[in-house]
């Protein structure tokens, strides 16, 4: 069985086992390691990618289920790190270890695409299940609010 998945604009045909989670296809097969493994059961959000424009946990999404879909990973969110969230993450010095941050940013990007002017409460609700063990939550909230402001102004 062969599957076709468009990842960051590039079409990939693969005959890996269709039950393989997209996470491991990205990390081990394509060596796109920006998408992180954290829990494997959809609890932590480190593996968040966009599938047809919606933030999804790639540890819960199989290759089979991704067939024919458009996937965006952190590597494809912008060409050069210029997404307003990526810029806001830097200007707010959000990251400590940085491991969970690709997932945080992908979740936030989905929020801002659907709600360009979120309240702090809406930001917190959207990111409630993205765990950061370093405890960067305060800065994550500020960065998302900053990025929203930038996007509105643009």
């Amino acid at each position: 069985m062969s599957y076709t998945i468009t990842i960051n604009g590039q079409v990939h045909k693969t005959d890996v086992n269709g039950d393989m989670p997209l996470l491991w296809f990205l990390r081990d097969t394509l060596e796109l390691t920006g998408t992180k493994y954290g829990c494997g059961i959809g609890l932590c959000g480190s593996c968040t990618v966009h599938i047809d424009g919606n933030a999804m946990r790639s540890c819960l999404m199989t290759v089979k289920a991704s067939n024919g879909k458009k996937v965006t990973t952190i590597e494809g969110l912008s060409k050069d790190g210029s997404h307003p969230l990526q810029i806001a993450w830097l200007s707010n010095n959000v990251s400590q270890c940085g491991y969970c941050q690709p997932g945080q940013i992908m979740t936030a990007a989905d929020l801002l695409a659907k709600n360009p002017d979120p309240s702090m409460e809406e930001i917190t609700t959207a990111l409630e299940d993205n765990i950061c063990r370093c405890g960067t939550y305060k800065r994550i909230g500020l960065a998302v609010a900053d990025a929203a402001k930038q996007m509105k102004g643009a």
Partner: peptide
């Protein structure tokens, strides 16, 4: 190291 983190 933060610039590398936000682009994976």
């Amino acid at each position: 190291d933060q610039a590398d983190m936000v682009v994976g």
